[in-house]
């Protein structure tokens, strides 16, 4: 991706000043001048992030009604609710860039906007609630801790709030896993199966290798991103391997080996064909996820219209009085 070809002299001075501010670690606020591409990249990235939170409610929401204890039921509701909240925070942040949430939701529903590939995998057992919390939220935290230092103020502030709240997500997930690991043979088997299904898709969450990631360089330069996909992925793996060992589950990668030279855990080849299939709309649950969001949107239409109509009636009454 390249810069627009026609840049006026005025604008190039503005761009230089803008980039100098970013290089100096300043944060960019909604009304500050920013290059149009920065604005568009932010809208793309932030709305993708918000959509991921919203679509991410579905695979876990799928098990709320079946949670096996009241405590688990409450923490799962609270967690899925937090995802709605996080989606909302990020949508609000995106709205400061002059685009309505309404418009962003349309983009999600008609397929113009993307969301995290992980949520297109089905949740097949209760253990998935544990493994999603552990892997998926673990991966999200690795990502978001870095994004809390992003250059755009509203995004960074939303991330700070989200990171604070999400701490419980990963812990509750890992706690579920640890409990299953200490449970009956059937529970242990359920756990290992969920780990087997979610490990690779979780690694894919960080996105393609930087050499194949079209947006990375520009996002890094503008400090919309602060670390590369590969760096974040490696960090996640390094954190997770000992956690898996601690509860006696096997990560499904025969090539996983500690590399004393780099201090990293080396890992096997990721199936990027699968990733691009899922991103391209052909994952196991893409259609169901969007259909569920579309249904909520359609069935909510009369409710939203009613609230609007009521408020304007009230307003007229107040004015007439």
């Amino acid at each position: 991706m390249t810069q627009p070809t026609t840049v006026t002299a005025d604008e190039s001075a503005l761009v230089a000043a803008f980039e100098a501010r970013i290089a100096a670690g300043e944060s960019i606020e909604p009304k500050d001048w920013m290059p149009e591409r920065y604005r568009r990249q932010l809208i793309r990235m932030m709305s993708q992030h918000a959509h991921s939170e919203i679509v991410g409610m579905l695979p876990e929401g799928n098990w709320i009604t079946r949670a096996p204890s009241l405590r688990r039921k409450m923490s799962l509701i609270a967690k899925v609710q937090d995802e709605a909240g996080h989606g909302l925070y990020i949508y609000c942040g995106t709205e400061t860039l002059g685009v309505d949430r309404h418009e962003l939701v349309e983009q999600l529903l008609d397929g113009r906007a993307k969301y995290s590939s992980i949520f297109n995998y089905p949740t097949l057992s209760w253990a998935d609630m544990g493994v999603i919390g552990w892997f998926v939220d673990g991966a999200a935290i690795v990502n978001q801790t870095i994004l809390a230092k992003a250059s755009y103020g509203p995004y960074a502030r939303a991330m700070v709030r989200i990171c604070k709240e999400e701490n419980f997500h990963k812990r509750q997930g890992y706690e579920i896993c640890a409990t299953l690991a200490n449970g009956t043979p059937a529970q242990r088997e359920m756990l290992q199966d969920a780990v087997n299904r979610f490990w690779w898709p979780s690694l894919m969450m960080f996105g393609p290798s930087d050499t194949d990631s079209p947006n990375s360089a520009e996002l890094l330069k503008w400090r919309v991103k602060r670390k590369t996909n590969d760096e974040l992925r490696q960090r996640f793996i390094n954190l997770t391997v000992p956690q898996a060992a601690a509860i006696g589950v096997t990560l499904p990668d025969p090539d996983l080996k500690f590399n004393a030279e780099t201090n990293n855990w080396d890992f096997g080849e990721i199936d990027w064909d699968e990733f691009f299939q899922v991103i391209g709309g052909n994952g196991p649950c893409n259609r169901e996820r969007i259909a569920a969001r579309q249904q909520a949107q359609d069935e909510g239409e009369w409710v939203r219209a009613a609230a609007t109509a009521h408020a304007s009636k009230q307003h007229r009454t107040v004015q007439a009085a």
């Binding site: 309505d100 609007t308 408020a311």
Partner: peptide
Amino acid sequence: DISSNGKDTDGQWSL
């Protein structure tokens, strides 16, 4: 202009 509250041009509730 409080009358803009409640409904935005695109049917979205106001911010």
